[in-house]
Amino acid sequence: KDKDLLKGLDQEQANEVIAVLQMHNIEANKIDSGKLGYSITVAEPDFTAAVYWIK
């Protein structure tokens, strides 16, 4: 199951987060929520590491 990592990002921010996570071998998903911006989700086992790397 995926957990929400970040919400309300613009496309550039979302792409930067995806890139950082991929560099650390964390699979992440970018979801277009329309006017609400983009959300990033990661698998539950990767959540703690993902939070660490996006600081």
Rank of each mutant, 00 (worst) to 15 (best):
Y38F: 13
K1A: 10
L6F: 11
L36S: 10
A50D: 03
E44Q: 06
E44W: 10
K30E: 03
Y52M: 11
L6V: 10
I26L: 04
W53C: 07
I18T: 03
D2S: 13
S33Q: 15
D2T: 14
E12R: 11
Q11V: 11
A14F: 03
Y52N: 07
N25A: 07
G8E: 05
E27S: 14
K35Q: 11
A19M: 11
L5N: 02
E16Y: 15
I18K: 01
A19H: 10
S33G: 15
L9C: 09
Y52F: 11
K3V: 14
E27V: 14
K30A: 11
A28Q: 00
V51G: 04
V20T: 08
K3G: 04
D2Y: 15
I54C: 06
L5E: 03
Q13T: 13
N15K: 07
A28F: 10
T41H: 06
L36I: 06
I31H: 09
Q11R: 11
F47Y: 12
Q13S: 10
L6I: 12
A50R: 00
E16F: 14
E16T: 12
L21K: 01
A49I: 10
I31C: 06
P45D: 15
Y52P: 01
D10A: 07
I26G: 04
D10H: 07
A43Q: 10
A50E: 02
V51Y: 10
D10M: 07
D32T: 05
Q13Y: 09
A43T: 05
I31F: 07
G8S: 05
Y52E: 11
Y52D: 07
N25T: 04
A19F: 11
N25E: 05
Q13I: 06
E16C: 15
G37K: 07
D46R: 02
A43E: 05
V20N: 05
S33T: 12
G8W: 06
N15H: 07
D10I: 05
I40K: 00
I40G: 01
Y52Q: 08
I31P: 02
G34Q: 04
E16L: 14
Q13R: 12
L36Q: 11
I54R: 01
D46L: 08
L9F: 02
G8Y: 09
N25P: 00
H24A: 06
I26F: 01
A49F: 07
L36A: 12
D10F: 05
V51R: 06
E44D: 09
I54P: 01
Y38P: 00
K30G: 04
T48Y: 14
N25S: 08
D10G: 07
A50M: 03
T41G: 03
S39W: 10
S33V: 11
H24N: 05
N25H: 11
L21A: 00
V17G: 01
V42F: 01
N29H: 13
V42P: 00
I18G: 00
E16W: 15
K35N: 12
D32R: 07
D32A: 07
E27N: 14
E12D: 12
T41M: 08
L21W: 02
N29P: 03
Y52L: 05
K7F: 12
V51K: 09
K1I: 11
N15L: 09
L5V: 08
E16P: 01
I26D: 01
K3S: 05
K1T: 09
A28C: 09
I26W: 00
E16S: 12
E16G: 08
F47N: 01
G37I: 05
K7V: 14
I40T: 00
D32Y: 14
L5Q: 01
A50Y: 05
L9A: 02
Q11F: 14
A14K: 02
E16D: 10
A43V: 03
H24K: 04
K3F: 08
T48E: 15
Y52R: 05
I26S: 00
F47L: 05
T41R: 10
K1W: 09
N15M: 09
T48A: 15
Y52A: 08
A28G: 06
N29C: 10
S39C: 10
K55N: 14
F47I: 04
K55M: 14
I18V: 07
E16V: 12
D46W: 09
G34E: 04
L9D: 03
I40H: 00
V51P: 00
A19S: 08
L5R: 00
D10V: 04
V20L: 15
K7C: 14
K55A: 14
A28I: 04
E27A: 14
D4N: 10
A50W: 02
A19N: 09
K7I: 13
M23G: 07
T48F: 12
P45W: 13
A49Q: 09
G8P: 01
S39G: 07
Q13K: 10
L21N: 02
T48D: 15
K1F: 09
E44L: 10
L21Y: 00
Q11A: 13
Q22E: 08
I26R: 00
A50F: 03
F47R: 02
D4I: 15
G8I: 02
T48R: 11
I40R: 00
M23N: 07
A50S: 04
D10N: 13
E27F: 13
L6D: 00
I40Y: 00
N29D: 06
V42E: 02
N15R: 06
Y38V: 05
T48K: 11
S33Y: 15
V42A: 01
H24I: 04
I40S: 00
N15P: 01
W53V: 13
D32M: 08
E44P: 07
N25G: 15
L6N: 02
L9Q: 01
T48G: 09
S33A: 13
E12H: 12
E27D: 11
D46P: 00
V42M: 02
G8M: 05
Y38Q: 01
M23L: 12
I31K: 10
G34L: 04
K3E: 05
I54E: 02
V17D: 00
P45V: 15
K7R: 13
D32Q: 09
L36E: 13
H24G: 02
Y38M: 04
D2L: 12
K55Y: 14
D4E: 15
Q11G: 07
V20A: 06
E27I: 13
I18S: 01
L9R: 01
Q11W: 13
L5A: 03
G34H: 04
V17T: 04
D4K: 11
E27C: 11
K35R: 10
A14R: 03
K55G: 14
D4F: 15
H24V: 04
K3C: 12
N29L: 11
A19R: 14
Y38W: 15
L9S: 01
Q13H: 08
I31R: 05
E12A: 12
S33P: 03
Q22L: 13
L9M: 05
A19Y: 11
K35T: 12
I54K: 00
V17K: 02
K30M: 14
L21H: 00
A28S: 06
L6T: 04
K55H: 13
G34A: 04
K1C: 10
D2F: 14
D10E: 06
P45E: 14
A49K: 10
A28D: 03
E27Q: 14
L36M: 11
K30F: 08
N29K: 14
D2R: 15
I26H: 02
K35V: 13
F47S: 01
K30V: 14
K1D: 08
A28K: 01
V17P: 00
N25F: 08
A28T: 04
A19Q: 06
V42D: 01
G34I: 03
I31V: 11
D32C: 12
N29M: 11
V20F: 15
D4H: 14
Q22S: 11
I40D: 00
K3M: 12
I40C: 03
V51S: 09
S39E: 06
N29Y: 11
W53I: 13
M23T: 08
W53H: 06
S33L: 15
F47T: 02
G34Y: 05
E44F: 08
L9K: 01
Q11Y: 12
I54W: 09
Q13G: 06
N15S: 07
S33C: 15
D32G: 10
